[in-house]
């Protein structure tokens, strides 16, 4: 890898080489998830602070499990019970956590830029587990791993991202990541959630407000959840959204026959996606979840384990030993 990471704040500032390295590092961890004894000693003695200032289920469990499977201990902070409720500032809260000497901190926060704000003020590696409507880099990395697995490569596909792009950190991280690999991206959704200026986010990004046109020739369709909790504007009636933008079996047929369907979850069945599509053969939804563990193990190992890029991979030893 060209440059060692000190934090994972987003995909925008990652190089193509760094991304490819993380995906390669995740590969053995992916196989490791099928191993009967899912515990390594790689990060034994290390502690990972899991600081979730915004509620989350899957990402928090995924990071906590990834740390556990690497042998690390975790200390968890949750928004509902945190001292933030008592008026403590973010910086005081994370400095308090840092004083307990964790080796890295995973942050989820409702404010865009909060992980960067923290990274500038702490000495330990910061991993962004989703910040406001800015980035969710581990989600984009696990999506990339899923695409690479299912489609054989990551480069040069036509990928349509469908839904509320304006409020989606998943979309931003995916746009930055995928366009580095020559992917052509079509963003589609109601015009108020998919502003034209998004085309200036990265090269090869196209905005469309018509779902049929956006799906034509798509190799991958990413469906996003409608983020009602982030929408300040007058909202759209669910029936309008379903009629205009839901990914239904009929609409999916407009994409390529082998198109892969992804969704970052949580899924609201019957709203942004029809159950038949979510559960159908083209869906990669559950693989995404498993791949999330592999990606997060790779990142924790790389950022907190401090191993050299060419060191033997910890999961490979285990997998070889059991062969």
């Amino acid at each position: 890898m060209s440059q060692r990471l000190s934090h994972l704040l987003g995909t925008e500032n990652l190089s193509r080489e760094q991304i490819a390295f993380i995906l390669d590092q995740a590969k053995p961890f992916q196989e490791f998830q099928r191993h009967p004894l899912k515990k390594l000693a790689t990060l034994r003695g290390k502690t990972v602070a899991i600081a979730f200032f915004e509620s989350s289920t899957r990402t928090r469990i995924s990071f906590t499990t990834a740390a556990a499977r690497l042998g690390a201990d975790t200390m968890a902070l949750q928004a509902e019970t945190s001292s933030l409720k008592k008026g403590e500032s973010l910086i005081d809260t994370v400095r308090t956590l840092e004083a307990m000497r964790p080796d890295g901190i995973v942050i989820r926060h409702a404010s865009s830029g909060a992980p960067e704000f923290v990274a500038q003020r702490l000495e330990i590696p910061v991993l962004n587990a989703g910040d406001g409507t800015h980035e969710h880099p581990t989600q984009a990395l696990l999506d990339a791993l899923t695409i690479r697995d299912r489609k054989g490569k990551l480069e040069d596909w036509n990928i349509t991202i469908l839904g509320d792009i304006l409020h989606s950190r998943v979309a931003r991280s995916n746009i930055h990541l995928l366009t580095k690999f020559g992917v052509k991206i079509t963003l589609c959704g109601p015009a108020m959630w998919v502003p034209r200026e998004l085309e200036r986010l990265a090269p090869n990004v196209r905005v469309s407000h018509r779902v049929e046109e956006s799906l034509d020739g798509a190799d991958v369709v990413m469906v996003l959840r409608v983020q009602t909790e982030r929408i300040h504007e007058p909202s759209l009636a669910p029936d309008e959204y379903i009629a205009g933008y839901q990914l239904s079996p009929a609409r999916l047929r407009l994409a390529r026959p082998d198109a892969l369907v992804l969704h970052p979850g949580p899924i609201v069945r019957g709203l942004e996606i029809d159950s038949a599509v979510a559960d159908g053969p083209q869906s990669g939804v559950l693989e995404q979840v498993t791949n999330g563990l592999a990606i997060r193990m790779a990142l924790l190992y790389h950022l907190i384990g401090g191993a050299a890029a060419d060191a033997p991979h910890p999961a490979k030893d285990r997998l070889n030993a059991s062969d």
Partner: peptide, 18 residues
């Protein structure tokens, strides 16, 4: 204005700021 924190445009979209 609606709770915004910076001028709307390509940069606010990039930073994910309202």
């Amino acid at each position: 204005f609606a709770g915004g924190v910076m001028r709307e445009g390509p940069q606010s979209l990039r930073l994910g700021l309202q």
